[in-house]
Each structure stands twice: as C-alpha cells, then as structure tokens.
Amino acid sequence: MNIRLRINGKWITFTVKPDEFLLDTLRNNQIISVKKGCDGSTCGSCTILLNNQPVLACSLLSVRADESTILTVEGHAEEVEKIAVAFGKEGADQCGFCNPGMALMIIALKQSHKNPTDDEIKHYMVGNLCRCSGYQAQFKAIKRYLEERL
C-alpha cells in the first residue's frame, strides 16, 4: 500500500505492508533519529509528534498515519537545540538513546502546558524511560529549558 506522510515539512510517499509500524517505515527510510527501545509501547524511545501529538511510532500502524504530519527532532531543530543546551548544562545527557524521544515529549509538554508544576512535568514525562540518568538532571534540564535559562 502507498501512504503519504508529511515528515518534517516534506511530503514523502512510502510503500508499506498492512502490518508495518511507522517506526520501521521511518528507520528503514533512514529517518534514524527515532529509536527502537522496546518495540512494545513501553519505553518512549520512539516518540514522534503525529499531527502535533506525541505518539509511539513503534506501535502506530503506518497505514493509519496516511496523510498525517509527522515531526521528529529534525523537524523541530530550533527547540531541540535549546533542549540540548539545557541538557548539556545540567549534565542530563548520558547515552542519549532516550533523548530524541524525550525532546519531542518536552516540546509537546511546552505546547500543552503554560506553566507546568513539577508534578505535572514528571507525570507528563513518565512514559519515557531512561536507564542512565536517574532522571534528576533531566528534570532540572527540562525546567531550565521551560524557564529559558539557556
């Protein structure tokens, strides 16, 4: 089947199988910023923005994304750069495997919450697992980014 996706501003047509998931479609087409951590909707590494909403690409059938707008970190370069700076300043990045997914989640958080409380931030981010950081520095980095202390 053919589907058309607007990925990071560019319409691209893909031929996909009915049981193909968007994460594989993207990675097989060299959109490698999206990571496969579990392939079972349990880790958040594969988070993308589908029509501006964070979803898990590993569990979204590609056909269902037909005619949708998809943003990965490449499509949000400016914000991602700022988040990266905040992460750097707080020492929040370690292996980084979780980071592209986390960055998109943070962007979505900023869009949906004006002044999130600490608790709201944590509850918003809870689906994104990180085995390296212990989360504390990430949390500080998110706050730094939201408060624009860059």
């Binding site: 909707s41 958040g44 964070p54 979803v55 569990s59 989640m105 979505a108 981010m125 809870v126 689906g127």
Partner: peptide
C-alpha cells in the same frame, strides 16, 4: 487514567 502508562501511550 493518569495511572495508565504515559501521555504518548494514552494518545493512542
């Protein structure tokens, strides 16, 4: 609902 997985999951 808040106790079911994360936001991206609940979006699906």
């Amino acid at each position: 609902l808040a106790s079911i997985m994360g936001v991206a999951f609940r979006n699906m």
